[in-house]
């Protein structure tokens, strides 16, 4: 039972991180029908930014709480700026080009950012400081839950709630929903569609950066390649849940996280990544639009 619980919480941790990344994929897809392949790199850049900032602040002798808060904030701002800029230079000029052009541009962006970080940093894994302290009250349960996991759950839940509020109730959120449903009509009611697209990239990048910081401090290391793997898995999760659907992205992420965790725990840890994709193929055979996806015919 304890082992089950450990796997369950491990899956929830993975799922939470996937969800933080998958949100960006699904929101961007919902608005401009583009798979932003550079999104995983945004997450990686968020983690690196936090690494650098926390390194500097540690040298300055700041306390752990201040370091993680400031490192996260800087990472979020920096990644959001990257997301915003990528859209402006790599996607916006191709808005009216064939869809494949933007997709290729996205893949190019992804490779560019990976190699840029590779050159600026190193290909080795770098240690990431343990920014999240061990909570005393978790001591008795330390066999199956770490305090970093608890922080991951809490932060992810808060982000999801915040995002739901943003999309449901705020002016920009309503503009995002309208733009996702009909861009031309959105502009005809006075919505600045370009601005909505920018905000979407900024929000998606910010949540991915939060995921990057959390996972790096949970695992304790990172390199330029982490965005690629995590990005692809989060993409799988987004497709699994129904690309374009926000609850779908969260659900798909949790399903994928748990499946991976239980599979590696009870069956074999050798084929973890293969399994994620096998799972994707299976789901899509039976539900081509994903778990919560709207089938195309439903679109007006």
């Amino acid at each position: 039972m304890e082992y089950f619980l450990e796997l369950f919480l491990g899956g929830l941790t993975r799922g939470s991180i996937y969800a933080l990344i998958a949100l960006g994929y699904t929101m961007v897809y919902g608005i401009i029908e583009l798979i932003n392949f550079a999104h995983g790199e945004i997450y990686m850049i968020g983690a690196f930014t936090a690494l650098i900032v926390s390194g500097v602040l540690t040298l300055l002798g700041w306390n752990a709480l201040a370091i993680i808060v400031i490192a996260s904030i800087v990472a979020v701002i920096y990644s959001a700026a990257y997301g915003y800029t990528i859209e402006k230079i790599a996607y916006k000029p191709l808005r009216n080009a064939p869809r494949l052009s933007a997709l290729i541009s996205a893949i190019g962006m992804s490779l560019f950012l990976q190699n840029y970080v590779l050159l600026a940093q190193t290909s080795d894994f770098l240690p990431f400081p343990e920014l999240i302290p061990e909570f005393g009250f978790l001591e008795p349960y330390s066999n199956f839950i770490r305090s970093s996991e608890l922080v991951i759950f809490a932060v992810t839940a808060a982000v999801m709630l915040g995002l739901t509020f943003l999309i449901k109730f705020t002016r920009i959120g309503k503009a995002m929903r309208a733009t996702a449903q009909d861009k031309m009509m959105a502009s005809l009611v006075g919505i600045d569609v370009n601005r909505v697209i920018s905000v979407t990239f900024i929000v998606g990048s910010a949540t991915a950066a939060i995921g990057g910081v959390l996972i790096a401090s949970h695992i304790g290391q990172l390199n330029y390649y982490i965005g690629f793997i995590a990005g692809i898995k989060a993409f799988v999760a987004a497709v699994l849940g129904g690309i374009g659907s926000i609850p779908g992205a969260v659900l798909g992420s949790l399903v994928l996280g748990w499946t991976e965790s239980f599979f590696t725990g009870y069956v074999s840890s050798d084929y973890e990544d293969v399994f994620a994709f096998l799972f994707l193929v299976l789901i899509l055979i039976f539900r081509p639009a994903g778990i919560l996806g709207r089938s195309e015919t439903e679109k007006v």
Partner: peptide
């Protein structure tokens, strides 16, 4: 070009 997944109220709001 009604926003299909917004309610009547939300469409008016838009």
């Amino acid at each position: 070009r009604i926003f299909p997944y917004l309610t009547v109220m939300e469409n008016l709001d838009m």
